[in-house]
Design a protein around this nucleic acid. Structure first.
Lengths: 203, 203
DNA sequence: TAAGCTAGTAATTAATTACTTACTATCGGG
DNA sequence: CCCGATAGTAAGTAATTAATTACTAGCTTA
């Protein structure tokens, strides 16, 4: 059962470590992801991890960068899938939920980093991620308002906060349920209520 | 500056420890709240903490019970403040946000416990708390629907999820902002959008 | 083939963790 | 006024943590 000591490039291992962290975060608190657990998940010794990252902080930073690229990428792509603002919103919502379902560790890592005191490089990166996210969100919401797809009295700032909160609520519910099963269906319902709040009162 | 060794009853210290944990959780991740930090916050030695709680887990449990009593108490009270379902919802929302603003550590502790794997006594308690919360929420939402205050086509389950998510979104935003300043005002706006989603399309 | 770089291991480091133990000071009641 | 109970301290414990060490093995290339 002993592994015959596979050698891989540092680049490969770096990517592997990031994925291992995401996988570990999916089923345990980011706070107790140790370098030993990461190594064990890759069939490596603990010391080997430090051949590819100088410090643990660097690992978290790499994970944050991965999330930034992939989540923002998916959101961007979704926002370009249609010209109708409300359809864009739905696509973005689905993309985000899909991402969270595929990588349940990601939202936890984000939340965990944000509640750390002070500001590390990781935290700054996460903040930038969320600011960018909120930016495109506000843009789409403003479009919807200008194009009369949303209510004239809609306040876009709280609407963006509620959008993000809706996703967090679903993530939390999935943590209660103990898994991501059925989240996509629940997301459908939640987005329906949200959308109703966006379009406002109509005839 | 040396403290003259104040003696307090164990009951008093237990309550003090719970408050210390809540205060510490307000400005750092629950994961790195150590018994040493708790003791330091109370001007006590680390060993003294274990005079009043047999284990650290017992401390978390006591904190969970405190949150359960106080948060659910505030919510319950708010739900009784009116006979109109929508006014009840607003009161519950404000009560929850007020609680989160007064004890910013509380939502973090809840979230942190939920993402722990397996099920501890603490986690079970938190789950019970949230189930109870959701129960009264669903009750009020159903009332609103039956009394035609909410849209006939409203699905109460996602509506409850979105309600909780709305609060989480505000908590997250406050973590980004680095404080609870201005949350109450932001809450106003978010609840407005949420409410619009609940009442649905009207003439 | 020999040299040099790289990715691996195993063992060890200092620091930190929850928790314990032995002892001491203080309080309240007979 | 003393005495038992209790709340405190100081100094430990074993376990775990990130990071470092000395050494080994494999790949490429001159």
């Amino acid at each position: 059962m002993e592994s015959p000591r596979i050698r891989r490039s540092s680049e490969f291992r770096q990517a592997e470590i990031v994925q291992a962290v995401l996988a570990l975060a999916a089923e345990s608190s980011p706070a107790d992801i140790t370098t030993a657990r990461i190594a064990a998940a890759m069939n490596l010794t603990q010391g080997a991890v430090f051949r590819h990252f100088p410090t643990k902080e660097a690992i978290w930073l790499a994970v944050a960068e991965w999330i930034e690229e992939n989540l923002l990428g998916a959101i961007e792509e979704a926002s370009l899938s249609s010209s109708e603002p409300l359809a864009q919103l739905r696509a973005m919502f689905c993309a985000h939920i899909g991402f969270a379902a595929a990588y349940p560790g990601a939202p936890r890592l984000i939340f965990h980093e944000l509640q750390q005191p002070g500001d590390s490089a990781v935290k700054r990166r996460i903040r930038a991620l969320l600011a960018s996210y909120r930016g495109t969100l506000l843009q789409v919401l403003k479009c919807a308002k200008d194009g009369r797809a949303a209510g004239r009295e809609l306040d876009v700032e709280p609407a963006a906060t509620l959008f993000i909160g809706a996703i967090q609520g679903l993530v939390m519910q999935s943590m209660l349920a103990g898994g991501m099963r059925g989240v996509e269906e629940a997301a459908e319902g939640v987005f329906g209520v949200y959308l109703s709040g966006i379009v406002g009162r109509r005839t």
